[in-house]
Design a protein around this nucleic acid. Structure first.
Length: 593
RNA sequence: GCCACCGUAGCUCAGCUGGUAGAGCAGCUGAUUUGUAAUCAGCGGGUCGGGGGUUCGAAUCCCUUCGGUGGCUCCA
């Protein structure tokens, strides 16, 4: 990377920053956003400018304009941008007083810029000029427009002014810019790769699940192949929970509205809950969470301090109202199953329990091939229940557990649940995208609302602390993430069909069927295909449906009592005995590969 | 919910400025008996998302409604 040409101009002078640095890239892309705004002003003089920052993957600019931009117009805008880049206009910084700047932008008919200036505290502000285009901007920028080597405009979307839905909807144009054509192409290929692994597309192609208009948006139908994957995940989850000292529960899907009033959900979570249903004059509510049920099981008899911690876990299906615009495949739905658990413990046990949960979570995630993650600690939101003191203690318990485990984390201020602070784990998938699934939340308030207690060693009543946690979050979302992570090529233990056995000609049908039978006896999910088709055709079909092992028998194999073994990735292991083949597959299964 | 775009066969899509629907794959039938990413031929399949309107005539134009997509806001 030739850093000498990636200068940025600051008020203190010129600094050299490579594109590869985060800051350098941001300046580069922010400059590209200015050029896009300039191009728009040239093409549509009446357009009003809002804001245009760089993002992690590119940049955008928000505009107010009375007619809507179309995809075709992006090409025109790009052409205009190329002209501006070719002109190689220098970016010139000017400083003026806030009043002068307001005059300037009021005169230029830029109400959004005036509004921004209204809220800036500083008396001196900076503007950047490039050619005949001036924008209010803190900077810095590239030395000149000609420094942009490669860019592309990607999409148009609506966006509220200042992100507030009460404000006017503006038009946002997204684009990206790179230091070279090659890097841009690499990024565009990455976008293609994302499309190829889209779980909605693969879900249909591989016949895993569907969401039907007739059933309702955000409600998932698990097809046989998806259901077997879910069943495998659930079995693993249940086994590991028993091993980790959890008790498994089942609870109903609806409960009296009063329960939700008592728990605080009706006051703090109503916008995500459905309207109550009438049952013989009593109001009942579909559950948006599982915790009140688990609390009632806790409360079903007197608890001793010796029993704690009590760990209740359930694959609990909940229903939450989500606004139609936010639904997205399996990743955002209205009905989903949480791998939920509630741990009741004494206050001095919190840290130890949270550390156990952290270990357990990371173990489960690693099993699915997620070994990179970011951890966040979310603190008290504006709407909350409980006392400030309780929040303080809960937050520090989470923080100390993370520190004890040596887990680096960032703080998300105000992002906690209404009943307590939480730790969120964002996993990184095979192409490095982040997904949030796991969450661990401390709750000092619900135990109080339901007045749950335990008998201490002193013979007195004490209040337990409750920890809510979900490791995969929801089975639906986790499944969606898994599909994208593996790009549909699930490891053998999760694959709906683990191997398929093909015959070369009809005369081998009996033999391959006996091979399939033997492998099925081992508990493997094996399909048989004796269709009257060429072997290339059958292999193609098997690869398209991501079957891990392709087993083929012709005259040779029948003669030697073997089977030819080929992996999904194209490696051919040659003719092996049925025994050898079975042990290769069983080995993958045992090691969850 | 908001803004934009989209909705044609099981799937992917074509159908220009209105003259009542087409391809590939998949499916079915037959021929072929095949050695690791597509054998050939024939056949069946659509109230063009739903409703309403304009028109002699609507997949095509208008309104409305339901879905989907990209974002915004919100979240497992």
């Amino acid at each position: 990377m030739t850093s000498a040409t990636r200068d940025k101009v600051t008020s203190e002078g010129t600094k050299i920053l490579p594109f590869s640095s985060g800051e350098g890239r941001e300046i580069y892309r922010h400059s590209a956003a200015h050029i896009m705004a300039h191009a728009l002003k040239k093409l549509y003089p009446d357009v009003k400018l809002a804001i245009g920052p760089a993002t992690s993957e590119g940049f955008y600019y928000d505009f107010d304009y009375d007619t809507n931009f179309t995809q075709d117009e992006l090409i025109r805008i790009e052409e205009k941008m190329r002209e501006i880049i070719k002109a190689d206009n220098p970016f010139i910084r000017k400083e003026l007083t806030r009043q002068e700047a307001m005059e300037l932008f009021r005169h230029a008919g830029e109400p959004y810029k005036v509004e921004l200036l209204d809220e800036i505290q500083d008396e001196i502000v900076s503007i950047y000029q490039e050619g005949d285009f001036v924008d209010l901007c803190r900077g810095p920028h590239l030395p000149s427009t000609g420094r942009i080597k490669a860019f592309k405009l990607l999409s148009i979307a609506g966006a509220y002014w200042r992100g507030d839905e009460r404000n006017k909807m503006l038009q946002r144009i997204y684009g990206t810019a790179f230091d070279s054509k090659d890097e841009l192409n690499e990024y565009l290929n990455y976008l293609e790769e994302i499309k190829k692994r889209d779980h909605r597309r693969l879900g249909k192609e591989l016949d895993l699940f569907s969401i039907s208009d007739d059933i309702g948006p955000g409600l998932v139908l698990w097809h046989p192949r998806g259901a077997i994957i879910r069943k495998t995940i659930e079995d693993f989850w249940r086994d590991e929970h028993y091993k980790a000292g959890y008790h498994l529960l089942f609870t109903p899907h609806i409960a009296r509205l009063d329960l939700w009033k008592k728990s605080g959900h009706w006051d703090f979570y109503r916008e995500n809950m459905y309207s109550p249903v009438d049952v013989e004059g009593q109001e009942y509510e579909i559950k948006p969470m599982n915790c009140p049920f688990h609390i009632h099981i806790y409360k079903s008899h007197l608890r001793s301090y010796k029993e704690l911690p009590i760990r209740f876990a359930e694959l609990g299906t909940v229903y939450r109202y989500e606004r139609s615009g936010v639904l997205h495949g399996l990743l955002r739905v209205r009905g989903f199953t949480q791998d939920d658990a509630h741990i009741f413990c004494r206050e001095e046990q919190i840290e130890d329990e949270i550390q156990r949960v952290l270990d357990f979570t990371l173990f489960i995630l690693r099993t699915f091939g997620f070994d990179r993650y970011d951890i966040y600690l979310s603190t008290r939101p504006e709407k909350y229940v409980g006392t400030l003191d309780g929040w303080e203690r809960a937050t520090s318990a989470l923080k100390q557990s993370l520190e004890a485990k040596g887990l680096l984390h960032n703080i998300k201020p105000g992002e906690g649940a209404f009943y307590g602070p939480k730790i969120d784990i964002e996993i990184k998938d095979s192409i490095n995208r982040a997904w949030q699934c796991s969450t661990i939340q401390v709750d000092f308030s619900i135990p109080e609302r339901f007045d749950i207690t335990y008998r201490g060693s002193d013979g007195k009543e004490h209040r337990p602390i409750m920890i809510h946690r979900a490791l995969m979050g929801s089975l639906e979302r986790f499944f969606g993430v898994l599909i994208e992570h593996y790009s549909g090529s699930f490891p053998l233990w999760l694959s709906p069909v683990q191997a398929v056995v093909f015959s070369i000609a009809e005369r081998h049908a009996g033999y391959v069927s006996s091979v399939a039978m033997k492998l099925r006896d081992e508990g493997l999910r094996v399909e048989l295909n004796v269709d009257n088709e060429k072997i290339g055709y059958k292999v193609r079909q098997a690869i398209a449906s991501r079957i891990p092992y392709i087993l083929v028998a012709g005259d040779k194999e029948v003669e030697d009592n073997t089977i030819n073994v080929r992996r999904r990735d194209g490696t051919n292991l040659g003719a092996l005995s049925i025994q050898e083949t079975s042990s290769i597959l069983m080995d993958d299964l045992k090691n969850r590969r």
